[in-house]
Amino acid sequence: METLSSSQGETVRRIAGDLKGRPGPLIEVLHAIQAELGYVPPAAVPLVASELNLSRAEVHGVVSFYHFFRSTPPGAHTVSVCRAESCQAVGGEALAAHVRQQLGVDFHETTPDGRFSLEPVYCLGNCACSPAVMIDGRLHGRVSPERFDALLSEVDRKR
């Protein structure tokens, strides 16, 4: 297991210290860590456990239970493609195949150059405008393969 950098360790301790007085704080602590570090480093687990007076198993159990928490650093941009029924009804599977091909990675993977992480998502609540994609927290509706390419190059330019 990689060790935490000293600044990462400081961040984790500060967040856990700030939130530990709240009722049932673990998920909030993990959200805050991921918001700052981009992921929850495995080496943060024992630190969070000791700060919150939980077992390492409890913390690991929560990190691994929830799809949203990641244990590896994300790419510079995160692309989430909805795989659920409403999007499937209007070409969502073809779009997903196109996205995989364009990025050259499968779901749950990051491109080797670290630019894009690709994640599946099961409903973005944009089902009247399917298929839906979220890129870096921005929601897009009625996304055709062509529109996806345009969005991707737009994001890439901003880098």
């Binding site: 049932g24 704080p25 998920i27 959200h31 929560v62 929830y66 799809h67």
Partner: peptide, 19 residues
Amino acid sequence: AGAYICGEETSMLESLEGK
């Protein structure tokens, strides 16, 4: 944190408790 099951009420309560 991205878990469909947490729409089930008792599972949601567990999640609210941070579990």
